[in-house]
Design a protein around this nucleic acid. Structure first.
Lengths: 248, 248
DNA sequence: AAGTGGTCTAGACCACTCC
DNA sequence: GAGTGGTCTAGACCACTTA
C-alpha cells in the first residue's frame, strides 16, 4: 500500500469532475498508483482540487463504475486489482476457461525468439517495421490434449521486462496482465480451415474449422502486444452477454 | 412524440436515485414510453418524485450513459431510438455492415413457416417445447452473392405482430429492433465446416470454414428470438473494441 | 427570450466498518 | 468511537438551443 500525492495538476478541459476523474485515472493507468494504492479521502481531494465534495464524489463514482478503483466505507478508496478483461468475451483467462469446464489446464511453450517486426507484423501490432519484438508460440492444454494454440508478439519497447521473462512455465497472457495496465483492446474473430502446421499442433485434421481470435492491446496509445489464438472449432464457443447499455 | 405520465410509483428499494432510474427505465423497456417520447423535465420529475434536482439528475444521467435516453438542452429528455446493439460486436446491422465495406446489400427470404418448438429449439430460445414459433431462413447478399445465411426463430407469444409480417422484403433483425426493446442478449461464436446444405446456400465448397454466431435475445426475462448466422469464414471478421471499463 | 439541462456549492445526516 | 463513503438537499449560475 503506497501512499498518494500531495498536489495534483488539472488540465482545465471540460467539467471539473471530468478533469478530476482524468487526473486520478492518469496516475492509475500510468503505473504511479499501482493496484492497492490508497487514494486520498474525499475530504483530502476537496483540498487538493479545491472542489466541493459532491464534485469529487462524482469523479470517484465514475472511476468505481469503470472498475478502476474499489471503495469501502471507513477504509477508503483503493486502486483496483489489474483491470481485467471483463464482462464481454472472457478470452483472457484461458486457464480459468478450461478449468471452469471441468478439465485440467496445462501449458507448454513451443517457441520463443526475439525478432525485428516485418511490415505485416508491424501493421498488426501497431508499431513500426524494425521494432524489436518477442515472438512466442505456446499451447494451452485441456486434460493434456492440445486445446488452444497461441501465437503472440510483444513489443519490447513497451514491455522491456518481457525480455528477461522465460514464459516456459507461466503463459504470457496472465504475465502481461500483471505487468502492464492496458487501456484498450481490439478483437477480430474469424474462421479458417486448419493448415498443416496448425492441424499438427492442435492435433486436428487438416481442413478442420478453427475459430481464430486476434487481439491487439494498447496502453495509452502505445501498442503493447498482438496475439492470435486458434481454437478447435468443434470444442470451443466464445460467449458474450450484452445489455443495451450495461444497466440492470 | 407521446406525452408522459403524471404520477409514477417507486419501489422503495435502495437509494432514491436508483429507484427513480428504475422507475423511468421500466416505462421505457416495457414499451409504455416508446422511442421518441419526451420525458418530464427535471423540474417536473422533482415534483413527481418529491426529490431534489440533483437526485433526479443523477438518475437521468445514468439513463443517458446507458443509452436509454437522449438529452438536449432546451429541448428535453427523450427515449432513445431503438436500443441498438452497440459498441461491442456490431453484428446486428448486416445491411450496414455490407454497405460499409463498399458493397451493395441484398436480402432474400428463403423459408418462412410457423412451427411448434422442439426440445432443442426450446432450450436454445429459452421458451418451452410446444411454444408457437415463427421459423425463418434468409440470405443476406453482398453484390448479389450469398454472404450471410440467417436462421431465425421468433417466439410468437413474445412478438404476436410477427405472425402477420411477411419478412419477404425486410430482414427480421431490423424489424424486431424496431418492434421490441430488448434488454439482454447472449452471443455464442464458434467455427464449423460447412455441410452440404449450408455450402449450397452460401455458395462455398463443402468443408469450408464458417463462422457461426448464435444470439438469444430477451425482453425483461422473456425470451424473444434466437438467431444463427453463418458467415463465410474467409470473408468476414467480427470486430470488437474494449476498454477496461468503457472510460476514456 | 425562455426553457432545459450541466454543473457546482456548502452543508447535512446516515451507515458502515475498521481500529 | 471515529473516519470514510453514500446519499440527499436547496439553491445558484451558466450554456445551449429551440421556439
Amino acid at each position: 500500500m503506497t501512499s498518494a500525492a500531495t498536489t495534483i495538476a488539472l488540465d482545465g478541459e471540460g467539467p471539473r469532475y471530468e478533469q478530476i476523474r482524468r487526473a486520478l485515472r492518469g496516475r492509475i493507468v500510468d503505473g504511479r498508483w499501482p493496484p492497492g494504492t490508497k487514494l486520498p479521502s474525499e475530504h483530502e481531494l476537496m483540498d487538493l482540487f479545491g472542489a466541493a465534495r459532491m464534485t469529487v464524489n462524482k469523479a470517484l463514482h465514475q472511476l468505481q463504475r469503470d472498475g478502476l478503483v474499489v471503495r469501502r466505507r471507513k477504509a477508503g478508496t483503493f486502486v483496483a486489482v489489474p483491470p481485467e478483461e471483463h464482462a464481454v468475451m472472457r478470452i483472457a483467462d484461458l486457464a480459468g476457461e478450461i478449468e471452469a469446464a471441468g478439465h485440467t489446464y496445462g501449458y507448454r511453450l513451443i517457441g520463443r525468439r526475439t525478432i525485428r517486426a516485418t511490415r505485416d507484423l508491424a501493421a498488426a501490432i501497431g508499431g513500426r517495421p524494425g521494432d524489436r519484438v518477442l515472438a512466442l508460440t505456446a499451447l494451452h492444454l485441456s486434460d493434456g490434449a492440445p486445446s488452444i494454440l497461441e501465437e503472440r508478439w510483444i513489443r519490447l519497447a513497451a514491455v522491456p521486462e518481457a525480455e528477461t521473462a522465460a514464459f516456459d512455465a507461466a503463459a504470457p497472457g496472465p504475465w502481461l496482465l500483471a505487468h502492464i495496465p492496458w487501456t484498450e483492446a481490439r478483437h477480430s474473430v474469424f474462421a479458417v480451415n486448419a493448415g498443416p502446421r496448425i492441424a499438427a499442433l492442435l492435433a486436428v485434421s487438416p481442413g478442420d474449422a478453427c475459430l481464430v481470435v486476434e487481439r491487439t492491446t494498447w496502453r495509452e496509445r502505445e501498442p503493447v502486444t498482438f496475439v492470435r489464438l486458434f481454437y478447435r472449432g468443434d470444442r470451443h464457443r466464445l460467449v458474450g452477454r450484452f445489455h443495451p447499455g450495461g444497466a440492470t
